[in-house]
């Protein structure tokens, strides 16, 4: 028996070193994989929020908002969710590297796989309206609203043909009274407006209207609607 062997075995016999129980290692693996699954699911939610915000943008009227094309374009990019997604993918990479076989895969393969998985799950969450619920929930928090694409400000440009607000009165499907976001009441002529699949208007509903200000009419704040859209897209 060698010197090293003798010393090691003596220490073991004396009980100076004991084996760690198997459950400790199993628990560690469960923790790593559990956090990995949670991170991928959170990444999927973040991706669904990116989709929600990008699909929620009225790209056809971008640039007609009060701030102009460049500012509007910069405003609609969902930075917050993109940063959250990126951080989660970095976490997934390092967490996966800590799995038993994680080191066998390249960084590109790990990150690409997690992005694809999160994108597929995120699309599913978006399609199931999950992202809308999250957005509505987070919308109650001022901090979130500040980071969010400000749809109200975008649709507060009647001089550029964009008017947003809440219906306060409806009259025979021809005229409605709409209160905009600075509480100005507008008389809106909707007789010739396209409304797509959203023609059942109700008092209290928020709308986005494309049209033009009626100049020199009988009412001081008149607006002729060409197209009516719901304020939030369904997803």
């Amino acid at each position: 028996m060698s010197k090293v062997s003798k010393k090691v075995l003596t220490k073991i016999k004396k009980g100076e070193v004991e084996r760690l129980p198997k459950w400790r290692f199993v628990a560690k693996r469960i923790f790593i994989w559990g956090s990995l699954v949670i991170a991928v699911l959170m990444g999927a939610f973040a991706v669904s929020m990116v989709l929600f915000q990008l699909f929620g943008v009225d790209w056809d009227v971008l640039g007609r908002g009060p701030k102009g094309t460049v500012m509007d374009a910069l405003q609609v990019i969902p930075y917050f969710w993109m940063v959250i997604s990126a951080l989660l993918f970095v976490f997934v990479y390092f967490d996966f590297r800590h799995t038993r076989k994680g080191h066998r895969y390249s960084a590109t393969a790990i990150i690409l796989s997690s992005v694809v998985l999160a994108a597929v799950l995120g699309t599913g969450i978006y399609a199931a309206s999950g992202s809308r619920h999250v957005d509505e929930f987070l919308g109650h928090y001022e901090a979130y609203q500040m980071m969010h694409y400000d749809e109200e400000r975008m649709w507060a440009a009647p001089e550029n043909g964009l008017l947003g607000g809440e219906i306060i009165e409806l009259d025979d499907g021809e005229i409605m009274l709409l209160q905009d976001f600075i509480e100005q009441v507008w008389t809106v002529d909707i007789e010739e407006a396209r409304c797509g699949m959203h023609c059942d208007l109700e008092i209290g509903e928020k709308l986005k209207i494309i049209g033009e200000i009626i100049e020199g009419g009988e009412v001081s704040f008149g607006f002729k609607a060409e197209e009516i859209r719901p304020f939030r897209k369904e997803r």
């Binding site: 010197k3 090293v4 062997s5 010393k7 090691v8 220490k11 073991i12 070193v17 004991e18 084996r19 760690l20 129980p21 198997k22 400790r24 290692f25």
Partner: peptide, 17 residues
Amino acid sequence: EDILQEVFLKVYHNLNE
């Protein structure tokens, strides 16, 4: 040799891993 002794003790300690 001293390092190796520690290594084998570590191996024994973590053998379930």
